[in-house]
Amino acid sequence: MILVVGGAGYIGSHLVKELVEKEEVLILDNLTTGHVEAIDSRAVFVEGDLGNEEDLDPIFSKYPIKAVMHFAAFSLVGESVQDPYKYYENNVANTLTLLKVMLKHKVKNFIFSSTAATYGIPEEEIILENSITSPINPYGKSKLIVEQILTDFHQAYGLNYVVLRYFNAAGAHISGEIGENHDPETHLIPLILQHLLGERDSISVFGTDYPTADGTCIRDYIHVTDLAEAHIQALEALLDGRKEAETYNLGNGLGYSVKEVIETCEKVTERKANVVLAERRAGDPARLVASSDKIFNELGWKAVRNLEEIIGSAWEWHKKGE
């Protein structure tokens, strides 16, 4: 059985939907940001907190858990700057509690959902796994601290892990049953689609004078189902002993500009956006794109769904509430 912590959240629920086809799945989620309706009925669900040993111990005692996949982090950059305690407590301290209970019960396979925010503002056009990690906010720092903990735990306790770093998960499941549902919403694609559904008056573009082809920032977007498939391939590599301690980037390797994303949303929805040009935001680099060559070469994974497919799936899901 695989324990998915945060399996009622956006990325976690999409992972579970794919994983239940191959493994028995147990979800642990405290539903702080997750949604009951996103829980796959084929999985066992336990409401509880990864930072509470009294919630964790009975789970590990009752179920034959062979690996843990961790998606239960807070991930809003702005909020992490305003309330760093919240981020270090949940993302670091609570993860330590989870790892402690795992080791107590001799569960030594761990998949960690990390972030390319660990790189901060990279100097390279394409970010590699060995690029300098210098996060510029508590969210990115909290993820990097856990990565460093995993390195130490592997050496000291034999904990095997795969860290997966990625930027912008987007899109919805092809079934239309689950999609991106954050409150507050901060991600570009759902913000545009909410605007095109009439839920927002406009969409803001922060900066049009960047050194890119159209002057707007370029970011790496990846379909959430592509992400789920990468996590499963990483899990299989741990379980069959091909990998013991590894870090991979997950990205499309190309990047799309803010203008390209808006135009593609307009094309898919056949609706016109009201775009408001605004000043640059502090700390926004011109380009953030990750190379996934390493995971392709070692595990055979690559992102296969393009921007139009990402937006099309998200649009079908968002329209359900229209």
Rank of each mutant, 00 (worst) to 15 (best):
Asp49Trp: 04
Tyr161Ala: 05
Leu250Arg: 00
Ala273Phe: 07
Gln194Pro: 06
Arg280Met: 08
Ile178Glu: 04
Ile121Phe: 03
Asp49Ser: 12
Glu244Gly: 04
Leu26Pro: 01
Ile222His: 04
Gly34Met: 01
Gly176Trp: 10
Glu23Tyr: 15
Thr33Tyr: 02
Thr186Met: 07
Ala282Trp: 09
Ala67Gln: 01
Cys265Val: 04
Trp301Pro: 05
Phe153Ile: 00
Ala273Gln: 06
Gly120Gln: 01
Leu238Asp: 08
Met69Thr: 09
Val289Ser: 09
Arg165His: 12
Gly158Asp: 02
Phe112Ser: 05
Ile39Ser: 02
Ala314Glu: 15
Ser175Thr: 15
Gly51Arg: 07
His187Ala: 14
Pro285His: 06
Pro84Val: 06
Glu266Pro: 08
Gly251Arg: 01
Glu322Gly: 14
Thr32Val: 11
Val46Arg: 05
Asn94Lys: 14
Asn249Ser: 11
Lys320Ala: 08
Ala116Ser: 15
Gln155Gly: 08
Glu308Leu: 00
Leu28Cys: 04
Thr225Lys: 09
Thr264Arg: 00
Tyr161Asp: 07
Glu177Ala: 14
Lys22Tyr: 15
Thr186Ala: 11
Glu279Phe: 12
Val261Asp: 03
Ala290Asn: 13
Leu96Met: 13
Val81His: 06
Tyr119Arg: 10
His105Arg: 04
Gly198Ala: 12
Arg281Phe: 10
Leu254Met: 13
Glu263Phe: 08
Gly140Glu: 09
Met1Tyr: 10
Leu159Glu: 06
Tyr139Asn: 01
Asn90Arg: 14
Tyr87Ala: 00
Asp293Glu: 15
Phe112Leu: 00
Pro122Tyr: 09
His173Tyr: 12
Leu250Glu: 02
Tyr161Phe: 15
Pro122Leu: 07
Phe71Met: 02
Ser131Arg: 05
Arg287Val: 13
Asn52Gln: 06
Gly253Ala: 11
Ala172Trp: 03
Pro135His: 14
Ala273Glu: 05
Lys86Ile: 06
Ile178Gln: 03
Ile59Leu: 10
Lys320His: 04
Glu129Lys: 02
Glu54Gln: 13
Thr269Val: 11
Asn181Gly: 02
Ile310Phe: 05
Glu263Lys: 09
